[in-house]
């Protein structure tokens, strides 16, 4: 294991200073937020050793606010704060539920949403909910501001639409509407603290006939980036919802994913678990609505 004794760390106190350092250093520095995955990657030598831009002390990037038509989350906001935020629990519950499963309390206290997004693990638990909630990422640099929809932010395995002088400063998610339900599902090898073998976020919009007017499904850890399950979504939209249509739709997910074998599971296992997770998740959404007296 590498000791990090020769690494320089820049620790700006304000966003402005941080952007200035990024402009000057660009690719020569790696941004560290909570560091709960980055420090492991550096110690294990997975990541090239670079000097660090430590943004952990920039408290102006820690907030959860109601915007005009979206919820605005500062990039440094911890998963503990996201999971316990009344705003997020009320209007973007899928994200709160995902935040709660990210890892142990120790991880949740330190890891940030911005770090999770830029670290870009295909298994990152915050990404599927952000896909279905149409998240927009706010990237700042000395030059100005860019707003990038999350699905175009990820271009391939750990390939991101972010310049070396840009910092992710805010995540915007839309509020779930009254006629929408959603769920986050995670299959990990340990309940309290695990990297996902498969995860998924489902968001449905009901029509007046107890059918789905619109369905969005995103899965993680089954492709180089988080992916939408388009064939599955299509098979559900406007259809009568019974056990056979739901099973058929869930089974179609294998067309949307391209899992690999790794230490946490085989590709075959991931395909089977993806189908199962969607089947379980769809029924949970439907049963919850039935119980609510619809």
């Amino acid at each position: 294991m590498n000791r990090l004794h020769d690494i320089e760390v820049y620790s700006p106190k304000t966003l402005e200073e941080a952007l200035e350092i990024l402009r000057r250093e660009g690719d020569r520095v790696k941004v560290i937020a909570g560091g709960t995955d980055l420090i492991i990657q550096m110690k294990d030598g997975i990541m090239p050793r670079k000097n660090l831009l430590n943004i952990y002390s920039i408290d102006e990037l820690r907030y959860i606010r109601m915007g005009n038509d979206s919820i605005r989350i500062g990039a440094l906001t911890s998963f503990t704060d996201i999971a316990s935020s009344a705003l997020i629990r009320n209007y973007a519950r899928i994200l709160a539920d995902a935040a709660n499963t990210i890892g142990s309390i120790q991880i949740m206290n330190k890891a940030s949403i911005g770090g999770n997004l830029v670290n870009a693990s295909p298994a990152a638990d915050s990404i599927p909910p952000l896909y279905v909630l149409d998240a927009v990422l706010v990237l700042r640099s000395v030059e100005g501001v860019r707003e990038v929809p999350i699905q175009s932010f990820y271009r391939g395995y750990k390939k991101l639409d972010i310049r070396s002088d840009e910092l992710l400063t805010e995540v915007r998610v839309r509020r779930m509407a009254e006629d929408e339900d959603g769920i986050f599902l995670k299959h990990g090898l340990r309940l309290g603290d695990a990297i996902s073998v498969v995860n998924a976020a489902l968001l449905v919009k009901w029509d007046g006939d107890d059918r789905f007017k619109d369905v969005k499904i995103a899965l993680g850890a089954v492709a180089p980036t988080v992916v939408r399950a388009r064939s599955c979504e299509e098979a559900l939209t406007g259809k009568e919802l019974n056990d056979s249509t739901i099973w058929d739709a869930a089974s179609k997910v294998v067309n949307d994913i391209s899992p690999i074998d790794d230490v946490r599971g085989t590709a075959e296992y991931r395909r089977e678990m993806s189908v199962n997770l969607l089947y379980i998740g769809l029924w949970e959404i439907i049963n919850k609505r039935n119980q609510a007296g619809w």
């Binding site: 492991i40 120790q106 206290n109």
Partner: peptide, 27 residues
Amino acid sequence: CSDGDCGACTVLLDGKAVHSCLTIMAQ
């Protein structure tokens, strides 16, 4: 474990439980 899995290195940082193995001095 030095990897954030076991919790043996837990300390309080500003009153909250964190892994001291995944916290650098600059933080």
